[in-house]
Design a protein around this nucleic acid. Structure first.
Lengths: 161, 161
DNA sequence: GTAATACTTCAAGTAAACTTGAGGTCAAGA
DNA sequence: TCTTGACCTCAAGTTTACTTGAAGTATTAC
């Protein structure tokens, strides 16, 4: 249990230490690195070494993912962080602000969805072009494969199901 | 442009009509059917025919997906609908209620996430076990591959990044 | 009646986000 | 010394939600 606690109180972390402390698998850290989300250097024995900063970075990645942001966007956002110098609280703050906006968008979308759900399901408008749920205000459906075109003609059928 | 408008004002719809009116691709309808999300019967020429009800079903699927609910859950929810008789407004209402709860959960999670984002990013607690973002209240991360274990030991490092 | 359009099946491809496995290196403890 | 555990690379497998393609049948339009 105690065996992963490094003997040396080092400033750098092995991949196993990062995995244990961040809660993500070693393979995931490898993957994140290959995707450019985190970075490391090697010791003499070709093993990865991470700055402690990577813990926060990974935590941020997880937070963003939990809110549904795809890795590609996360990578782009993280690119805003300085590569050379250690990110300051200010750097992280900017990131946080960006994500708060993204979160607000998502929250707004879900709330509108919820508020309209009762009205739309059960009332029949869901099958007509007029339903607000059918004319999504968001662009979510555009990312990735999904619905391509919205019904251009509508209202010419009565809703009788 | 007008050529998909069926000559017969039929009660049953072809796959192309459903695709056009629901906004999802024909291949997607095939796929949904193979996954048990929608159903059809065949005409003499082995072509799919759908009840008008399928339009609402597909709309519901899309709505649910936009809120991030995986197809498997949607299928389970739709199984609550009657197979034999045409679903009533009441049947749909029950479904709607279920999803509203799910939406409320998701909204709540995102709001807590947002409200804690500022406090956590930039303050350093993100790297400690005490950060609320590190001890997720939700089970989201459990579905699908992702973080497996949370850091069992924490607080034994100072946060200096 | 014939050509274009719509439909059929089935297999394989795609993208994201990882995981799993094979085969090998290296350092520390019994 | 030997074995165990952590590490390495690279390729291939997994899941979800589809899309694409090939090859053939049905229906509709002129």
């Amino acid at each position: 249990m105690e065996n992963l606690k490094p003997k040396r109180i080092s400033l750098e972390l092995s991949v196993g230490e990062v995995a244990k402390r961040s809660g993500v698998a070693v393979s995931t850290l490898h993957f994140y690195e290959s995707e450019g989300l985190i970075s490391s250097w090697r010791n003499e024995g070709n093993q990865r070494r991470y700055a402690r900063e990577v813990l926060r970075r990974v935590a941020v990645i997880k937070v963003a993912q939990r809110s549904g942001i795809p890795l590609a966007s996360i990578r782009r956002a993280l690119e805003a962080l300085p590569n050379k110098r250690t990110p300051t609280a200010d750097d992280w703050g900017k990131l946080s602000k960006l994500w708060k906006e993204e979160l607000n968008d998502r929250i707004g979308r879900l709330i509108r969805l919820r508020d309209q759900l009762d009205r739309c399901i059960g009332c029949g408008c869901l099958t007509l072009g007029v339903c607000p749920l059918r004319n999504p205000w968001d662009k979510l459906s555009e990312q990735g494969p999904g619905p391509r075109l919205l019904d251009p003609e509508c209202g010419d059928y009565t809703t009788h199901m």
